[in-house]
Amino acid sequence: MEATPKEQTKEQPKLIVSIGPHVRTDESTAKIMWTVNGALLPAALMSIYYFGLPAVMVLAVCIFTAMITEAAIQKMLKKEIAVADGSAFLTGLLIAMNCPANIPLHIPAIGTFVAIGITKQLFGGLGYNVFNPALIGRALILISFPKAMTTFTHPVANIMAFDAKTMATPLTVLKEDGVAKLLELYPNIYQNLLLGNRAGSLGETATIALLLGAAFLMIKRYITWHIPIPFILTVAAATWMFGGKEGLFTGDALFHVMAGGLVLGAFYMATDYVTGPSVRSAQIVFGIACGILTVLIRLKGGYPEGVMFAILIMNCFAPLLDRGMRSKVFGKAEAKGVKK
């Protein structure tokens, strides 16, 4: 902070110090962000198809709040207003995709405000936030309004779905009533999980749409396999080993991978450049640890779904992981007797 004191801002500062990663490329933040938004579009459309107009309203409220908050705070802090870079849009979109459809609309608005205002702008704006803004926003409203945030509705595939019946998510049913009840409520479970025909948050249901978007992002090399694949494989392995009722190695890995917000979290939120580690080997550790925490919370914890908390907890550790696993700088001798 000493490098660019406020007094100097009148003239261009000579030396700008910013935190990593420092990469020279023709990609811009705006281009990446809008591409990620585009990759999420199929899943958003699927949610509108299943949950109807309520989903549209949640999406609209979140995105609108995000952009207004971002612009207002940047204006207050006399910074350049950068709403057009799409990062606020993405945060709003992700929060909306993490909410149930028939939620009272002030709740996602509060979550979005906290996400953008406190988690992102207070820490210095894009690039400096410690936690994934969308996840903090969601965690806050989940613990503040637990009832509204866990009342999910039946996917009716009808545009006017305002009075859709409530229905528990597959993971909640599994946690509270067991497998028999789950199969009774959700026949053809894998097919429905893949297509998104199940109760759940807006964006987490349509696994196939999320996977399409993720594949696109991976081909464009905007995200790499280092975080999401270890994350998902760890969840699969750990639930297969410990998730079954009849003992070890009887758990249903495929169900656990598709049932919660894992695909959404692993590909779109754990891969956040800012809040995850940037060293490759640290990213793999990050993914595996996220997976272990997710399964721990799902099978042992107080919440049916653990992806959000797992990523948030690992966000705390990301700077430490980067620090510990940074590769050695060659051609630099350590002075004897003088540490750092």
């Binding site: 406190i118 988690t119 207070l122 820490f123 410690v130 936690f131 903090i136 965690a139 806050l140 613990i143 925490l293 721990l296 919370i297 042992k300 914890g301 107080g302 919440y303 653990g306 959000m308 908390f309 797992a310 948030l312 907890i313 966000n315 705390c316």
Partner: peptide
């Protein structure tokens, strides 16, 4: 001040452990 805010956010993340034991 920002450290206090940060601590609050870490505490929010650590809520994920609640109810585990």
């Amino acid at each position: 001040p920002i450290s206090f805010v940060l601590t609050g956010l870490i505490a929010l993340a650590f809520l994920g452990f609640s109810g585990m034991i």
